[in-house]
């Protein structure tokens, strides 16, 4: 039994949890989420560098919540999602257990948000170089070139909404795309219809995105979606000096004010 499996088994044995969401090998040679509801299946639990899905996306799924007490296997991006979700009052300390995987692949059980905050501080990684280079390239374009770049990228979009579905921060029980009276977001896949959606998505995640990049990995037509939110985060950090996913009591700049804010219209 691996160390990860030992931790999981103990949680089941002492009755702490009803469902554990982790990773296992799948039929196609990859890895995918596994939902373990009794300790007999624990031998299927694995972790390796292919386990990228951000499992925190399941924390609001009604059929998952029904099981009762949950435990999640989470690496750095997953843990950042936990803190961001916590700062938005969607999860309370003690609601779930987190088996954290550090940068060397070692598991440890984290039980409260303070432990998660410390873990994140000690396990920081840099964003992938390729992504930074592309961001720099786009930011160096003229406004017209940049508009053309994104228009071309969005024209590929088929509006399958996988970018929304895989995002742990897109947890609204009713997404703006699910409202059709009125039809806020056109269901059409056209340059304008696609722009509607991608602006709405990026703006709803501005300063909240923790950068797991799952939207980009899920996209069937390879739109570099994570860049939009990463760039918005950068602007927010410049203007307000804040970064999401680092603290459970994070005050989201776009929904809080500070007396020292440079804008004075709210005073």
């Amino acid at each position: 039994m691996t160390e990860l499996q030992n931790i999981a088994k103990k949680l089941f044995d002492d009755g702490s949890i009803n469902l554990l969401i982790g990773y296992s090998n799948n039929e196609n040679g990859g890895t995918s989420a596994i939902f373990i509801d009794n300790s007999a299946d624990i031998d299927k639990l694995i972790y390796n560098e292919n386990c990228h899905q951000n499992l925190m996306v399941y924390f609001q799924k009604p059929e998952v919540k029904k099981f009762g007490k949950l435990a999640f296997v989470v690496s750095l991006p997953g843990l950042k999602s936990v803190l961001e979700i916590a700062s938005e009052n969607q999860i309370k300390d003690g609601d779930a257990y987190f088996i954290a995987i550090d940068k060397d692949g070692n598991p440890s059980l984290l039980q409260d948000f303070h432990q998660i905050e410390d873990f994140i501080t000690n396990n920081q990684t840099k964003p992938p170089m390729g992504l930074l280079k592309l961001m720099e390239k786009i930011n160096n374009m003229t406004r017209e070139e940049r508009w053309q770049y994104w228009t071309d990228e969005f024209s590929k979009c088929i509006k399958c909404y996988a970018c929304r579905s895989v995002c742990p921060l897109c947890y609204c029980t009713q997404c703006i795309t699910d409202i059709n009276i009125p039809q806020w977001i056109s269901t059409e896949s056209s340059p304008i219809g696609n722009l509607d959606w991608h602006i709405a998505r990026a703006m709803h995640l501005a300063g909240r995105c923790i950068g797991c990049g799952e939207c980009m990995k899920a996209c069937p037509v390879d739109i570099p979606l994570a860049l939009l939110t990463a760039n918005l985060n950068k602007s927010i950090a410049i203007h307000f000096g804040d970064e999401p996913g680092m603290k459970a009591d994070y005050k989201y700049p776009l929904s809080h004010y500070k007396l020292e804010d440079k804008e004075n219209f709210i005073r």
């Binding site: 995918s32 989420a33 939902f35 996306v57 399941y58 799924k61 059929e63 998952v64 088929i158 509006k159 399958c160 909404y161 996988a162 929304r164 579905s165 895989v166 039809q183 056109s186 269901t187 059409e188 899920a218 069937p220």
Partner: peptide, 28 residues
């Protein structure tokens, strides 16, 4: 339920599928 716990409700499967034909009619 057991088999679909992982499903997140995006439309990739239907949109990639060669035989999925469901549609929605809209006035733009």
């Amino acid at each position: 339920v057991k088999d679909s716990l992982a499903c997140l409700g995006c439309g990739i499967c239907a949109y990639a599928c060669p035989t999925c034909t469901c549609f929605d009619i809209q006035d733009i």
